[in-house]
Design a protein around this nucleic acid. Structure first.
Length: 270
DNA sequence: ATGGCATATCCTATATGA
């Protein structure tokens, strides 16, 4: 099973790009962020025609998340991150797909920093850490996939020099991410590629894509129930090189679900 | 310190992204 996360930066503009990627890579589950569209504008029919059932939560102009599943309906678990009823950003979806709990998140960017937007980012992160703790120990296999807007370490960016004041690299931001990992979550891409630079985002400025000046900010975290299934992890970088591409490329994991529960209940000999 | 580019909407100007 291939599960991916892709910040599309506008679902309407990016639909041809998205369909091309889905057709070529055939992910079983795709978590999308930055739909930048109202619910009524979501292209569910076109995606259905491409073989995908969708669950989505849109918003005018900004944010917006969706979970796509190939050939099956994703079963909605929740549509918002608990902890703040006044938070009206569309940044969170949680669904069951094929026996796995799939979390799709779009963590706030937080720029400029310091300021109210950075405060909102940290507050959202705290709520997420709290909710993730419950998910981790739920007994279900869980993957939390999305645009975390966190560059975990200086190894996850081409050069931190011009980004030192950016919200994505702040010590508070990184500390939150580390606290999340400390619950036991596996950062799948870094786990399988500990010694090589991996990027998922290249901004539109200064020919950063052409020079491979990227950042790793899209992550897939697995809990202990799902981690034994991890086979591969990577980034479909070719998507970033297409015409009218998003500034993000899809990041993904491949899982062997036959290994589910293998660790939890060793079979007794007859 | 700013801008470079892209996408959105109250669309020839402004907010947001990262």
């Amino acid at each position: 099973m291939k599960i991916a996360t892709f910040n599309v930066n506008g679902i309407k503009t990016r639909l041809p790009n998205l369909l091309q990627w889905l057709g070529r890579e055939q992910p079983d589950v795709a978590c999308l962020q930055e739909l930048k569209a109202l619910d009524g504008m979501f292209p569910h029919a076109a995606l259905r025609e491409a073989g995908y059932h969708s669950l989505w939560k849109g918003q005018r102009s900004w944010n917006g998340v969706a979970i796509l599943a190939r050939g099956v309906e994703p079963v909605e678990i929740r549509r918002e991150l608990p902890g703040d009823p006044s938070d009206d950003h569309s940044r969170y979806l949680e669904a069951g797909v094929g026996g796995i709990v799939v979390v799709c998140l779009y963590l706030p960017n937080g720029n400029p920093q310091p300021g109210p937007k950075f405060d909102y980012k940290l507050a959202w992160f705290e709520r997420f850490i709290q909710h993730a703790e419950g998910l981790y120990g739920s007994g279900h296999p869980v993957v939390m996939a999305g645009d975390y807007n966190v560059v975990p370490t200086d190894f996850d960016i081409y050069n931190p020099r011009s980004w030192l004041k950016d919200a994505l690299l702040q010590p508070q931001t990184r500390e939150c991410y580390q606290r999340l990992l400390k619950q036991g979550w596996i950062d799948a891409i870094r786990h399988l590629h500990p010694d090589e630079p991996v990027f998922t985002f290249w901004d539109y400025f200064r020919q950063h894509w052409e020079h491979n000046s990227g950042l790793r900010i899209d992550h897939l975290l697995l809990n202990a129930a799902l981690a034994p299934c991890l086979l591969e992890a990577g980034v479909d970088t070719w998507v970033r090189g297409q015409e009218r591409a998003s500034d993000h490329a899809p990041a993904w994991v491949k899982l062997d679900l036959a290994k589910l529960g293998q660790r939890a209940a060793p079979r007794r000999k007859a």
